[in-house]
Every structure is written in C-alpha cells, then in structure tokens.
Write a protein that binds this DNA or RNA. Structure first.
Length: 136
DNA sequence: GCCAACGTTGGC
DNA sequence: GCCAACGTTGGC
C-alpha cells in the first residue's frame, strides 16, 4: 500500500530546483527518530510533497521515492535511514503553510502539529485536499 | 532576530 | 529513571 509523505528542506540548502537539476536526490542528514521511522517506512513508488521550510514556507511539488530503505551515507555509524527521490510534478500553484493552517481539514496534519519534523506522513485525504489546492 | 516546541544530555 | 538545563529547528 502506497503511502504519502512530506519532505521538508530549506531551499538555500537543497531546494526543488536542486532536485530538478540533479534528476534524483538522496534524502539524508535526518537526525530525528520520528522522521527516521517515516523514512524507513517509505516504499519505492510512494509519493511525497516537497516543502520549502524557513524560506517560502510552501509545498512546491511532488516527488516520488525511487530507492527506499538505504542507510544514510552521511552517517558514519550507519544507524540512520535515507531514501532517494525523483521529482514528479511541479505544482501549478504552490500551497503555502498559511493555506494549510487555514484549512480545518489540514489543521491536524503532522506538518502543522509537529513543525520541527522534517519527514512527515500525509494521509490520503490530506493528500487529495492539498493537490486540489495546488490546482492539480 | 526572537521565541516556542521539541529532542538530547547529564546530574542526581 | 527522573527532570532540569541546554541546543536546535523553524515559524513569525
């Protein structure tokens, strides 16, 4: 069963444009257990929103997990998880955090409630709602 | 730049 | 094993 996710990144470190330029990106550097659990639960073909934190504060597009269940190459102990993602769809209209917070259907999502979580799970309902807001 | 929320660390 | 202190993250 495919699940949905949200990946946060600071655009000045690694933004949507960087992912496009590379074609495929390794999602590593996660040092939070809950985020790690989410990473470890991802499967090839799962889709994830790409969210710009600190700057922009909006979901800019959708990427797809291309390789799942790898160990973080930046972790010398090999304890942390990582995945590879490929860009899939750029949103016609980015969905801002403000819009998400303003929508009662989305007010409970991990992104809003756990603002410091860098890898969050998105329910199918939330997924559809956000896609609709993005103009897809 | 500030501060709230969360995670981690270390003393007991 | 508890909890206070500290560091980091991320929205504002």
């Amino acid at each position: 069963m495919a699940r949905y996710w949200l990946l946060k990144s600071e655009p000045y470190k690694y933004g949507w444009d960087d992912l496009i330029a590379e074609g495929e990106g390794v999602w590593d550097g996660v040092r939070n257990h809950r985020a790690k659990n989410n990473l470890a639960a991802m499967e090839v073909g799962d889709e994830a929103f790409f969210y710009h934190s600190r700057e922009g504060l909006e979901i800019v597009g959708i990427c797809e997990v291309s390789v799942a269940g790898i160990t973080d190459p930046t972790d010398p102990d090999g304890k942390w998880a990582a995945v590879k993602v490929k860009p899939k769809t750029k949103f016609p209209t980015p969905v801002t955090l403000k819009q998400i917070k303003a929508d009662p259907e989305l007010a409970d999502c991990e992104l809003v409630k756990l603002s410091r979580l860098s890898v969050a799970e998105i329910t199918p309902d939330e997924w559809l709602t956000i896609c609709a807001m993005a103009g897809l």
